[in-house]
């Protein structure tokens, strides 16, 4: 077991977003988090990172309780976060963005890992460019590269294909498949595109109103389930 979340509740101010949320994740798995907008997918990611106002319940990660740790120490446990809307540092260069990712590395080595440059040749050729000048798809690549620089045990991907043109969506999907299937990296993927989710994931987690309403192997994700919890 790589990560286990048990009876987690998360709040913004006094508003409760996640209610009694539990799930477990094995190493090497790709779990897809599904649900409509506003049911708590992003909050789930943020509460793993410790970015919500308040949480109760436990998160165990790689044999360590991280539920009480401050955000910067959680990332150092080996969690690579790719937030919604990418949130790269627009005023920093591509190189600086990736180096920043490696600040969270457990071994303390600061570098642009070879994996980032071989996965994303465009970034490798534009290391000195201001990240804010990149296109949306390139920024998403940078967000992934930055998270990979952490040398993470798990990648949290919050709608990585949101607002990105279709041909890049396929490219990013392929990158994620490669990371998961060939390099054995564990992924938690919040996704709206059911097709992408079906193609990539081993398991799914259906959320509605801050609770897990269904989970299982991805084959068990029936169209009825999708209709019930994802159709608006």
């Amino acid at each position: 077991m790589l990560m286990q979340m048990s009876s987690m509740s998360a709040f913004y101010g006094k508003t409760q977003i996640l209610r009694d949320f539990s799930f477990a994740l094995d190493e090497g798995q790709c779990v897809c988090v599904l649900g409509r907008n506003g049911v708590g997918k992003t909050t789930l990611m943020r509460s793993i990172m410790g970015l919500t106002d308040r949480t109760t319940g436990q998160i165990e990660f790689a044999g360590r309780q991280i539920g009480e740790l401050p955000t910067h120490e959680r990332s150092r446990c080996g969690i690579g976060y790719i937030p919604q809307g990418r949130q790269i540092f627009g005023k920093l260069s591509v190189r600086e963005n990736i180096l920043l990712g490696s600040f969270a590395r457990a071994d303390g080595q600061v570098e642009v890992p070879e994996m980032c440059t071989s996965l994303f040749p465009y970034l490798a050729e534009n290391l000195e460019r201001r990240a804010g000048l990149l296109s949306g798809g390139q920024q998403q690549q940078l967000a992934i590269a930055r998270a990979l620089a952490v040398k993470p045990k798990v990648l949290l991907l919050d709608e990585p294909t949101d607002g990105i043109q279709p041909n890049i969506v396929a490219e990013i999907g392929e990158t994620l498949r490669m990371l998961n299937k060939e390099l054995g990296m564990t992924l938690i993927l919040a996704e709206q595109h059911i097709k992408v989710a079906r193609k990539l994931s081993d398991r799914f987690l259906m959320i509605d109103n801050g609770r897990v309403v269904a989970e299982g192997d991805i084959d068990e994700l029936t169209d009825e389930l999708v209709d019930e919890h994802m159709t608006v």
């Binding site: 990172m49 955000t71 910067h72 990332s75 976060y81 937030p83 540092f89 180096l99 920043l100 969270a104």
Partner: peptide
């Protein structure tokens, strides 16, 4: 790099250690 990252986006800087 850390100073400028924190200035731009404290949450994301914290998310990277």
């Amino acid at each position: 790099i850390k100073i400028r990252a924190v200035t731009q986006n404290r949450e994301m800087a914290a998310s990277f250690g």
